[in-house]
Design a protein around this nucleic acid. Sequence first.
DNA 1: ATGAAAGCGCTAACAG
DNA 2: CTGTTAGCGCTTTCAT
Lengths: 350, 350
Amino acid sequence: MPLMPDRAAPSPAPPVLKRATLVDVAAHAGTSTISVSRALRRPAMVSEGLRARIMQAVQELGYVSDTAASALASRRSGVIGVLIPSVADAVFGDLLDGLYDAVAATPYTLQLGNTRSDAATEERLIRIHLGQRPAGLILAGIDQSSAARAALERAECPVVQIMDLTENPVDMQVGFSHHAAARTATGHLLARGYHAPAFIGARIDPRTERRLAGYREAMAEAGLAHRARVVTTPKPSSVGMGSTLFRRLRQYAPDADAVLCNDDDLALGALFAAQRAGLSVGREIGICGFNDLDVMAAAFPALTSVRTPRREIGAAALSMIATRLWDGDVAPPIRDLGFKLMVRASTERV
Amino acid sequence: MPLMPDRAAPSPAPPVLKRATLVDVAAHAGTSTISVSRALRRPAMVSEGLRARIMQAVQELGYVSDTAASALASRRSGVIGVLIPSVADAVFGDLLDGLYDAVAATPYTLQLGNTRSDAATEERLIRIHLGQRPAGLILAGIDQSSAARAALERAECPVVQIMDLTENPVDMQVGFSHHAAARTATGHLLARGYHAPAFIGARIDPRTERRLAGYREAMAEAGLAHRARVVTTPKPSSVGMGSTLFRRLRQYAPDADAVLCNDDDLALGALFAAQRAGLSVGREIGICGFNDLDVMAAAFPALTSVRTPRREIGAAALSMIATRLWDGDVAPPIRDLGFKLMVRASTERV
DNA sequence: ATGAAAGCGCTAACAG
DNA sequence: CTGTTAGCGCTTTCAT
């Protein structure tokens, strides 16, 4: 599909005042285009006097460099691609916030791709982005298809996989262990005296699987593998779904006295469902979330959750790319930013 | 700042297998570059036989068109810029979801800019985006600085202002009336028998101002202008802030028996604070939110809110740009997508 | 420190 | 329907 169809361009060509180019600026400043280019990109390469004249000309003509021409000539774009499963999810919202904050101080631009947790879509987006000779690529997760991995390994730009940790990243990596986080949270529930903590999760993806494994491991270590109860759904997560899963859990496993939720939305839904059922949250039923969105601390009762360093991951990913681009080497290329269990009233057994 | 510093390029030039270009494909298919270009962009312009040969060559060489070269030669990029105040806000998350959904069916790419509700940043971003000769520009809000407006009016691409409605848009527009929405919500509270509904809001921006005006207007129409109570803060909105503002309101105006919240986060915070204070939500204190995020219906008690068509606005904005680009004309260029009051238990006076 | 010349890979314009 | 010829605006050599 072309960017515009044949019959387009009905506009009777208004007297478009052509935007100023390097040539215009050079003429205006009485120098050559290359000097203007240099004055703009590496001011140190141009004598002070010339630079001043050029800058003034730039000002007067309102010159703005043409991204496309620059990218073509230098074979390098200022675009850093970011591929995430969802733009509406609060978890990725925080990540993006960190990313956009960090990129503001650099000459780079972010370009977002929405994979919808779909491997084929991710593969396609990776190809499209690589076609733009990006300055860098940031990917959520470590579960790219093998075809995607192959393409990435051939990529001529820094690649950072984020949110998760793996033994063999494509290139660089920053995240935390979902397995360890869930294991810690489950351990906390057990330590607090809950005898049968269950697990609920929606839209099971590889990250969820790793959390679930952490839950199972903690249960097994406590000799409670036989008491593990898991309720999941392939549907997307939401607060409403949290309530639904909680009710389902109560039916399926009435003995469950605590629930580790795969994300905070589910935990909030579980809270509301428990309240509806007249349960005393904390005493009769423990609830623990995952991510620690702002709402968890504000809820009544306040909800325990695993705080994950989303914003920090965004900032770190960008800094790793910038460092690689400017200094050539990043150490260490794999960073575990950890997590922190935020214990609150919802798991106070009292 | 250059995209890469002088001392970069320490890599000893690995035997980079140059990516295939149009010339390569043309040679491989035994034709000219322009035919390949056409076969890719307007298949109808090329005979079936030639097209088949070209497509095969494209396949075999794994050819991917160079975005920069294409943009430079055609003076047109496939980028649609999107400028919003925050990427972490759930409200804009839904908008983006609608936008990304809609763009997937087009040859365009979205490029996000984060204005942080800052006029200067927005102005800068507008300039940067226009410098890329975007295919279109989507802006949240109608309150651009006059300098920004001037730049936009000179833009050679479709521009859509979204989320809000104004008399004189730069170009096209799709949104709803924040004033009318707040007015309706306030009217609902009064109709339900609340005698002194108050208003709480965080990070006052122009959109909030319009909602506040709607609240005041409804109060005035009911002859209750003297009972209007407003508590706001310049700090960002959050669930925790909702609790804070609610407590502040109770001190400042103990007689307030309902509260219209500027957004759902605040409403949720008000809910929790009310519960902490032992108030019966609905009977003793009415709570109404704004936007109707998923959590509102799931809360206990369920929270009344004004449903705003965020996803639909995203889809509509993109379709308006596509239509303008392809058909030349969009009718109507101004679209009011309305809102809907979702009445729930939190405003059941009983 | 500055400049001249030669493309980057693609598409518009104009032939055939 | 197909091809030729020129650039698009910038940056990279390579001189000076």
